[in-house]
Structure formats: structure tokens, C-alpha cells
Nucleic acid binder design. Sequence first.
DNA 1: GGCTAACCGAGACGGTACGTCCAGTCTTACG
DNA 2: CGTAAGACTGGACGTACCGTCTCGGTTAGCC
Lengths: 193, 193, 193, 193
Amino acid sequence: MAEAGRGRPRSEQSRRAILAATRDLIAESGYEQLTVQAIAARAGSGRQTVYRWWASKELIVAELVVNGELTLPPVPIPDTGHLQHDLTAWLDEIMLSLNDPQAGALMLALVTAASDNEADARLLYEMSTGPYHAALVDRLAQGVSAGQVGPHGDTTAIADALIGTVLFRALTPGARPAPTSVVIRTLLGRSES
Amino acid sequence: MAEAGRGRPRSEQSRRAILAATRDLIAESGYEQLTVQAIAARAGSGRQTVYRWWASKELIVAELVVNGELTLPPVPIPDTGHLQHDLTAWLDEIMLSLNDPQAGALMLALVTAASDNEADARLLYEMSTGPYHAALVDRLAQGVSAGQVGPHGDTTAIADALIGTVLFRALTPGARPAPTSVVIRTLLGRSES
Amino acid sequence: MAEAGRGRPRSEQSRRAILAATRDLIAESGYEQLTVQAIAARAGSGRQTVYRWWASKELIVAELVVNGELTLPPVPIPDTGHLQHDLTAWLDEIMLSLNDPQAGALMLALVTAASDNEADARLLYEMSTGPYHAALVDRLAQGVSAGQVGPHGDTTAIADALIGTVLFRALTPGARPAPTSVVIRTLLGRSES
Amino acid sequence: MAEAGRGRPRSEQSRRAILAATRDLIAESGYEQLTVQAIAARAGSGRQTVYRWWASKELIVAELVVNGELTLPPVPIPDTGHLQHDLTAWLDEIMLSLNDPQAGALMLALVTAASDNEADARLLYEMSTGPYHAALVDRLAQGVSAGQVGPHGDTTAIADALIGTVLFRALTPGARPAPTSVVIRTLLGRSES
DNA sequence: GGCTAACCGAGACGGTACGTCCAGTCTTACG
DNA sequence: CGTAAGACTGGACGTACCGTCTCGGTTAGCC
């Protein structure tokens, strides 16, 4: 029934320009300062074009997240075979990247965008942190096989705690946290080697 | 500092009504929907009275947090002498309280209020999660003395990870997390007893 | 002028449907509410088809006027040989037709369409009132020959005054005007017979 | 019940600035080009302030008319005792003033503003043309007493025809009308003296 | 007990962003 | 190549709040 192919097709160029403009503006000024006006202006499009495809700012952000265009910098987990070193290196790099104001702004944008809508929150967080979580569980499972995780460690629990720790630190800029190596040692229940 | 007692004194009643109205509105509709208009209306006060004492919405929220009127429900850490049981019970109760939509809204309000202002973020988080964190560190230190923490655990790292885990779960409503007892066992590096 | 018979010929049917839709919509809702959107929808055509043949709403209205499809109801001036009776009858019928809300709307549409464009104004008014004016001048000239016009009457001035009177009354719905017979008697400078 | 005197009183200065801005903009660019945006900008006020006091552009224009701030230039009817000369002089001056593009724009604004609302139309026209009409009827009545009006002339009919003639000519810029002296002679049913 | 300063409510002020509607243009598939 | 459909940029609309301001009216401390 949907009259397919009738009329001018949506401009993929506009769509991308809007998404890119949204991403850039969040990185520059934060989610709170974001306006549809500014998005459209930066994208060189009309405001109506934004509203034609997304019902709200939140949903533009959601699409960015789903597309993997708006997320924490994709830090791959090293795999040297030495779990403790690998996770420490990974956590160091994540924490380092959060010092970048852009990454921090994106992180907070995700949190804010999710604040007002439980349904969106699930989507946003699964999309943005899901890959991290899954990759961590994989790497941890491999470490378990290699006997590199303490006898009482649970891969899901460790992954939750790792991501939670990152989240907590991103949101508490003034805190004086434990060194990353200590965090990893604690979570793995292993002495440093 | 106060210009002697000249003039009509500020109405403590108004101040309290504004704080109460803010708390209630956040619980009912979330931080994003919060407007000074609505706060004043609900408090039965004028908008100017709000602005006379607080420069922004964020600072009203900050005062609520500082006063302990807006925070996660104050769940004390049990102290039966058995660290693992105590922390598991505590985590269970925290997670349970997050199912209450009001508590969830307050939690997200804290996050959102901090999103756009690094200075406020520090205040808000230290006030709201600081006490939890400190209490956890104390209880953990006591557990260390009693030999109830694995040999590689660091109290700060465990407290960070616990709060981070709570944060992570609050923000990912759809996830299927590990059981609390497994989380605690993992963080303590101890078998269940 | 027409590029030989290449391609699909313009649809005379669409053109007519657009003109008819425009006329109907003006009659129903007035010129101010008229939109190209609505014209195209009612005509079952695309908006582009409208713009292909007319550069603006005003010019569609102009064409309706030129075609005589949008004008005051064409009231012919009777010619019984008795100028005074004929003009009174004509004026009566014109005034009667203005009670019809459709005719009133068309009349006001003409005025409004002309309001902002001196060039269009000339076209619109000459086309819509020109025929009336010319017919009046003719009939009056005939009356002059028959000695039915007062010695000081000028045919153009009388025609102007007659049309102006109609215009004035159409635009002042609340006024309580002189009887038509008195108007004619005054303009002709003649007693009633 | 109306809580009189509560809150900041409306700014008479803003109100006047908005009315003045509207009047000026109509004179400069015509009613069709008028936007609330432009009115507010020119008045140095916010758009909301306009909407707070008037529900539509039409009603601002209506208030201008009611206040006598937007009308044809107030041309008084001379009274030398010689009706024919006086009316000819008056008509000449009116026609002259219509050549002023400002006066023409105001005239058309009145017409357009009335186009879409029968209730407003009555108000607008009675306020704007009413004084002219009343003054004409008075002067004509005086002329009747002095025997300066033909035996068949009716004061209301003559006034209607005069104003109608002015209206007609204002709306038909291209026409070649009868000389004013001929118009007056015709309407009065009198030879020139 | 009157004066006066600082409060209170109410609500208008100049602004900014919203989301909708329409103008006039452009780009498809179909005939 | 005209057509219906419909997306495009652009811009005005009317609404909702912001943070500031200005009223009339209250409530203290001080003379």
C-alpha cells in the first residue's frame, strides 16, 4: 500500500549532513546547547528537513548511536595473551580518551539523551556500551580459559564493574581514583605479574 | 555580612516550598521537564523568589543534594561482621530501590544536572555518591582487617566498581545483569560462604 | 511557439481543474485562506503543475478574472428604454447578489489580490469592473440621447459613482444605505417617474 | 474578580511602539509584507509582547484604525459657503493624497485587513470612512438648505457615491477618470458656477 | 506608630527555540 | 516531456520558557 518510489526520494546527503552536524555540535558545545536551528544551519538544510525524519533531537542522537557514529572512541582491547596487562592498557586508554573534551561531551550526551525516556535509554546504552561490554566478556572468557582470572570472578560481573567504573569516573571529574592497575588487579582477583 | 536585620526577612517557608516542589516535580516528570515556572507555581511562590535565592535550576538541585533531600534512598551498609553478606544485602536493596520510578528519576536528574557543567558535576557527585563511597571504603577497610577481602583487592577500587555497577545498571534498564551475590564475590575475590 | 508536438502535451484538463479549484476555494474560504497546496489537492494535481503555468496565486486569480470565471455575477443592464428603472433594477440585483456570501468572497478576493501589486491591480480591476463600467457608459450615453439624464450629468462620472457605490457597500457590511431608487435618482439628477 | 493591578503593568511605551512600527511598516512596504517579526524588531520589543496584546496582525491594524492613527490623511471639507467649489477642492485633495504611496498603502491595508472577517470589516470601515461620510453628509445638508444641491439629490446617496468614487479610483490605478469638477457637478445635479 | 528596606505574589518585558505550515524549487517514476 | 508525488531550502507563524523588571502589597527593625 505504501506508494513506493513515488516523489522525490529522501536525500541521503541531507540525512548524513544532519547527523554529522549533530555529532560535531555535540562534540563542540555539548548536548544541552544543541538546537535544531543550529543543526540545520550547520548541515546546510532547512529545519523542516530535520523534523521530517526525526521527531526530536533525542532520536537524532539515538540514530547516531545506533549507527556507531556517536560513541566513545572505539578502543579495542589488546590481546597479547596477558589479560591483566591488556585490560590495564585498555582502561588507561579509555580514561585518557575521556580527558578529551569531545569524548567527554559525547559521553554526557548519551547520558542526557537517555535521561527522559526509558525506552530510548535501553537502546542508547545497549548500542553505545553494548559492544564494549561484549568485547570485555569475550576477552575475559578467554582469560578464564587461560587461568588468568581469579577463582571467584564472573565475566559479566567484571565487565559491568569495569564499564561502571569508567562511567563513574567520567561523571566525577574531581575524584582521585585508584590507579588503573590496582583496579584491574582487584577485579581479576590476581596479583600483578 | 547580612545587612543587619533591616527589611522583611526571607521566607524560610517559601524556600522550603521551592525545594520541596523541585524534588516532587523531578520525581514526577524528570529533570528534563522541570521548569522554573512549574516550580514556582507548585510552591505557590513567584518566579522571582526562586531566582532571588538560586541562580539556576541546577543550583536548586545542587542544594537538594547537599541537604540530602535529593539522592538515592539512604541505604545503610549492614554490619553483621560478614562483609560478603552485608555487601550483597546492601547491593540488593539499592538495586531494588532503583525499580522505584521516583528513585530512578532522581538518579537520572543528578546525572543530567551534572552533564553540562563540570564545576557542578563535582559538587553534585561528591555530595550524592560521596557518602556512599566513603561508607563503602570504611566497611571494606574493616573487612580487610578481618581478612574478608581477597589478597589483591583495593578498597577504593572495589568501592568505585560497586558504585559504577549501580550507575551502569540504573542507566541500562534492559540489561540482564549478573546476580548481586556473584558481583560481590567477584569484587571481593572470595568464594561464597 | 509551441515546440512542435514533442512530448506529452499539457493537460488542458489539469489547467481547468486548477482554475475551478481556485474559484471554489475562494468562494468557500476566502482569498486569504487560499494556498497552492489546497488548490493542487482539490484539483487532483501536483503543486508543480500549478507553478508550471502560473507564477503565483495572484496570476491564477487574474486568469479567472480575465476568463470571466471569477467576478461579480454577470448582471446585464436591462434596456426597457426607461433608464431610471433599468439602472434601479440593475443596482437592486447587484446589491442582492452581494448578500450571497460566495459573491462577497469573490469580490473581496479581487480587492485583496490587487492590494499588493499595482500592475496586477490594473489588470484585475479593468477585467472585472471594466465590462460593467463600459456597459454602464453605453447605457448612460443612450439615456443621454433620450434626454433621460439630468443636464449636468457626465456618463463616466455616473458610471464611476455607481461602481464606487457598489464597492463601498460591499466593503461596509454594517452600513444602512440609501434606497437604490434614491441613489439612481440622485446620480441621474432626475425625479422619479 | 479580575485581580486588578497585580503584576507588572503593561508598558504603554511598548504598546505605542508596536502600533507605530505597524503603521510605519504598512506605509513602507504594504500590508501583505507585514510580519510580526518585523513589527517587533522595529518596535524594539519581543514577539511575545505583540501576541500578548493582539491575537493577530488584523487586530493591530484594527486598533490603529480605531485610534485614528491609520487612516487616509484627514482632509477637512472646506466651507466657503460654495458647496460645489468646496467639494471639488476636497475631492482634488483626496485624489492628490492617494498618489502618495504611503496613503495608497494604508488604504489598501484597510481593505485587505477587512477582507477576511465580516465583523472586523464593519469596525474598520466605519472607523476609517465613517468620519468622512458623516462630514460629507453634514456639509451636503448645509448645501441643501442653501439650495446648492439639485432637487433630486439625496445627501446619503451623494456621500456614498463620493466615497465610492474615491475607493474605486484608488483601486484602479490605470483608469482615466472624469475630472473632479465634472464628478461633483454630476453628483450635485448642478451646472458649474 | 510611622518610616523604610527588603521581601512577597504576580505578571509583563526582550529574547530564544520550539514544532507546524506554506511558498517556491527540484527530483524521482510513470505514461 | 508533462504529470502526480513528494522532498528540498527558506521563512513566518503562534507557543513555551528563560532570566529580568516592575508593580501593589506585606512584614520586619528602627526611630
